[in-house]
Design a protein around this nucleic acid. Structure first.
Lengths: 198, 198
DNA sequence: AGTGTTCCGATACAAGCGCATCGGAACGAA
DNA sequence: TTCGTTCCGATGCGCTTGTATCGGAACACT
């Protein structure tokens, strides 16, 4: 048997390098040579992992989406007030904002991919799948809260989940443009989620 | 005196070509050659109008921003129910959405420039200036409505204007990704603005 | 140790890019 | 008409891009 490498972990590593490049210089800054340098590997290694540049970009998109979802679940798990559904909702949305200094890069990556997805139906489908998962997560939280009597019963879980996601996206844009501070965005989320309480 | 051309109108014309290219193929699709072809002029003419590509892009950004503002003012002027401040508010936000079929291109252009502005402080400043004008427009409408007794007095005009803009941006993103239809976005705007009524 | 397979680093290459250059067309003033 | 200036279309240049190619290194197995 020949030499073997862990392809999947290498793809993750390269995807991370791609995200850092996008976050700093946008999609235009993603060249195979730069990616290789950022990842600390040679161009040949990158080419072996991904048949073409676009395949690499799609993988990177899914990579950052996965991380957002993970962050959301982590924030729910370590929620400051366990049992409070509105807190869990808020933490999920905070994870989506991804404006926590170190994660601010991810927000720019999200922005770049979303802009591209507005032009490329294939990328749009990837983003929609990601959003579908988040919507479901929020909807479950909302329904749970309604069963517990923590969320006002007249709220429609699905449409409210959509509205919350729309708010998070809008806030992300505003923060990235420097029109909102991180704090004011968080405050807006807090206000919106507490307004759902009974 | 030598041959003279109307530089300003030519710049507008080229900017329009740039917008159409961005709307169809993104910022990556904007090359001097493609711009010249789309505008129906030669590359030399483009180079004469703009010293460099970036200058052209900034001008195009301001071009599309101007058009959004104009559309907003036009929609206010031909408001279906003159005198109704909430209707004017709604029409302004509808203009910002720019998802009216023919304007859907502009929404994609907005998205592309905004993503770029998240990386380039100079572009971010241009966008912030644009938003400042829109915020002021909305705030004036809100204050007028409060003086007329059409808008609930406890609303803070500035922060409410910001919130409305955030909503519009979020909805634009959702529509471009195909997660919201044009109609549901308009409905969301309508609901939000009517909620401000006394 | 030998061998067969997998991997990868370096290089080559065509295409496309932004920009600079320049000779001549276009046009107003004399 | 002639002149002087402005404009522009075509072309060239240096550079970067994504991808293809390939000789040899790296490693598991016999």
């Amino acid at each position: 048997m020949p030499k073997q490498v862990d392809h999947d972990s290498r793809r993750q590593h390269i995807a991370q390098a791609v995200c850092e490049l996008i976050g700093r210089h946008g999609l235009e800054g993603v060249t195979l040579r730069e990616v290789a340098a950022q990842a600390g590997v040679s161009m040949g290694a990158v080419q072996r992992c991904f048949r073409a540049k676009e395949e690499m970009l799609v993988f990177a998109q899914e990579h950052v989406n996965r991380r957002v979802t993970e962050r959301a679940r982590a924030r729910i798990a370590e929620s400051p007030r366990p049992g409070s559904v509105t807190t869990m909702l808020e933490q999920t949305l905070v994870a989506m904002l991804a404006v926590d200094d170190e994660d601010l890069l991810d927000a720019r990556v999200w922005m770049a991919f979303t802009a591209q997805a507005a032009l490329d139906p294939a990328l749009a489908a990837v983003q929609r799948a990601h959003y579908a998962g988040l919507t479901e997560l929020l909807a479950v939280l909302l329904r749970t809260g309604q069963e517990n009597g923590q969320i006002r019963p007249e709220v429609d879980a699905e449409s409210e989940a959509d509205a919350l996601i729309t708010l998070a996206d809008g806030l992300t844009v505003q923060v990235l443009l420097g029109r909102h501070s991180r704090e004011s965005a968080l405050a807006a989320l807090h206000q919106r989620t507490t307004a759902l309480r009974t």
